[in-house]
Design a protein around this nucleic acid. Structure first.
Length: 561
RNA sequence: UGGGCCGUCGUCAAGUGGUAAGACACAUGGUUUUGGUCCAUGUAUUCGGGGGUUCGAAUCCUCCCGGCCCAACCA
């Protein structure tokens, strides 16, 4: 009997398997996750992190964390820290292999000198504008720089002086001597070093020149003896250059493989757009629960497990795609369904008076903490004459399919009694202010000895025992699935109702001791977690992670359409 | 006639010449003290399109169509 597990398979793993068969990298598998510390990580990075660390794990290999810190004007130690936090939170460990591109600056400089000595690189003194002009266009070849044929001695001298800070920013660059007529624009004498007389967060004032991505990245991979250098598809054009540098220098040569980056509908993923939302205060910060950042998802209540599962389920390929947010929501529901304690919370309270219930009686009802996990046990929930139920669990003129409370109908209060609605009280605006019901003492616990059934079970909270809390309901950041399809700026597509704040929610008393980050299922509503920033013991704030699937809501929606 | 990459269900995605996996979404039934969970069933005669090779094609050839990337001293 074979138990066939659905194993993760994708084109990159196939390539690795092939290489292993031919002993391509001495049987090693060594990957790396190489973020630039210039922003916060988002779910797209999580895909790459899970890929790289996941492959290392599955092939008994290693995965390095490496900061690609070659551009001091964009980078900041704040990001270095946040990135490490997020990766750890996701559940991955680089052990002692935390590296920085800046660790290799000396070595890179030596390699640059080697290129110059071999006539493969030269110092160019064209201005930024001239370099652009000389590069040509996508359809026309470029022309060679006037400085392309300087002597090796002059190049060496100039490079040394660039390094020493003798020249202003932008006055000279070091360039690879390749081919100004190449059809691949990146091969038209790409820049290797540019002058940037700026302090670096790790090397301080030591350097006045910093290496460009194409030169630096392949060497970082080579120095760390990476076997498979996985990057996103937009670097496909860079691969010939990656290979060119490593061949020119005749050093260890990792294999670059490109894959498609993640796009998710109803949200934005680019660093630029996220930065815009943060800077222009459309959201409260990088960890706003509406954002697809790792820290935003964490604050929203997502678990690392769910994000890892999501990364596995979306698969991996080279074609550009737009993954349905519903899949992400599915993975968090799946995880939380197994683990989250159930609890009763009334978000939009409607007072219910049980006329035939004794005035001062309080009963402690037994409630199951998690029907999916018997070991979670039970708890006591106080019940009394005045309770709150959800406003939308009552309708005066109910349609056929509505089987919650309506005048004359009997429903079950979860873990308590059957109650029957006798009449509703309205205020001058026509809004219901309270319901008068009667209960059947024989139905304690929620079942009738005579075997009669009810169609609905409602959650509730005892008025005098309840605690008050603020609850923030989140929905999609954008009101359209793909802002790229709309003919407008993505900010015009922001969902104006992406956050709804309810200030007067009533929770069962046990929740008073809940801790920041703690997750619950509010029965019949969704999964919620205690906000890690704004929640205080005396004024609790909950974030809705995701709603429960809701058949009734679906029916209503269908009718309205 | 710049170059490179990519088109398989509504959305992802396996498949590498032997007759279309799986997941999400959707639909229908069953169980249920959450209109939740769970269970069962249904959903691509067809792989962007046309030709061709072959006993046999999503897989090979060819032409066409569509999408993405490249002209930062960003990564």
């Amino acid at each position: 009997m074979e138990s066939k597990k659905t194993e993760t398979t994708n084109f990159i793993r196939n390539i690795i398997d092939e290489g292993l068969k031919t002993n391509k990298h001495e049987g090693r598998v060594h990957t790396r996750f190489p973020p630039e510390p210039n922003g916060y990580l988002h779910i797209g990075h999580a895909k790459s992190i899970c890929l790289n660390f996941g492959i290392a794990r599955d092939y008994n290999g290693l995965c390095n964390l490496r900061f690609d810190d070659t551009n001091p004007i964009k980078e900041d130690p704040e990001f270095v820290q946040s990135i490490q936090n997020d990766i750890k939170w996701l559940g991955f460990d680089w052990e002692d292999r935390l590296y920085h591109a800046s660790d290799y600056f000396d070595q890179m400089y030596e390699y640059a000198i080697q290129l110059v000595k071999e006539g493969k690189a030269y110092v160019c003194s064209l201005s930024e504008k001239e370099i652009r002009e000389y590069r040509g266009t996508v359809k026309e070849p470029g022309k060679e720089s006037l400085y392309r044929n300087r002597s090796i001695e002059e190049n060496l001298d100039l490079l040394e002086r660039m390094k020493n800070g003798e020249f202003e920013d932008g006055t000279h660059t070091l360039r690879a001597k390749i081919d100004m007529a190449a059809s691949n624009m990146l091969m038209r004498d790409p820049l290797i070093y540019r002058i940037r007389r700026k302090r670096h967060h790790r090397t301080g004032g030591k350097w006045n020149i910093y290496p460009m991505y194409d030169f630096a990245h392949c060497l970082e991979d080579s120095i760390e003896r990476i076997t498979h250098s996985l990057c996103s598809i937009e670097f496909e054009n860079n691969r010939p250059l990656y290979d060119w540098f490593l061949n020119a220098l005749d050093v260890y040569h990792p294999q670059q493989i490109e894959f498609a980056r993640l796009n998710l509908n109803y949200t934005v993923m680019s660093k630029r757009k996220l930065l815009e939302l943060v800077n222009e205060s459309f959201v409260s910060g990088w960890d706003d629960p509406r954002l697809p950042t790792i820290c935003g998802l964490k604050r929203r209540g997502y678990t690392p497990e769910a994000i890892r599962t999501f990364s596995d389920r979306i698969g991996l390929a080279k074609r550009q795609s737009l993954v349905d947010m519903a899949l992400l929501e599915h993975t968090i529901r799946e995880d939380l369904n197994k683990s989250a304690p159930r609890v009763m919370a009334v978000l939009r309270p409607l007072k219910v008076i049980i006329d035939n219930y004794p005035e001062d009686l309080v009963e402690e009802m037994d409630a199951v903490n998690n029907p999916e996990d018997a070991s979670a046990g039970t708890r006591k929930v106080p019940f009394s004459k005045i309770i709150y139920i959800e406003k939308n669990d009552f309708m005066e003129d109910a349609p056929k399919k509505f089987y919650r409370l309506t005048p004359g109908r009997e429903v079950r209060l979860r873990y308590a009694y059957f109650i029957k609605c006798e009449y509703a009280v309205k205020d001058d605006n026509g809004d219901f202010t309270e319901l008068h019901c009667t209960y059947d003492p024989e139905t304690k616990g929620g079942s009738a000895p005579d075997g009669r059934k009810v169609k609905a079970t409602l959650h509730w909270v005892s008025a005098k025992h309840s605690i008050k809390a603020e609850v923030r309901l989140y929905s999609h950041l954008l009101s359209v699935p793909d802002p790229g399809l709309e003919n407008k700026d993505f900010k015009e597509c922001l969902n104006p109702n992406s956050m709804q704040v309810l200030k007067d929610c009533k929770l069962e008393p046990g929740l008073a001791n809940s801790k920041p980050g703690e997750r619950f299922q509010f029965e019949r509503q969704g999964y919620f977690c205690v906000d890690s920033k704004d929640s205080k013991h005396e004024s609790l704030v909950f974030n809705r992670t995701v709603t429960l699937r809701d058949e009734w809501a679906r029916l209503q929606k269908k009718k309205n359409i």
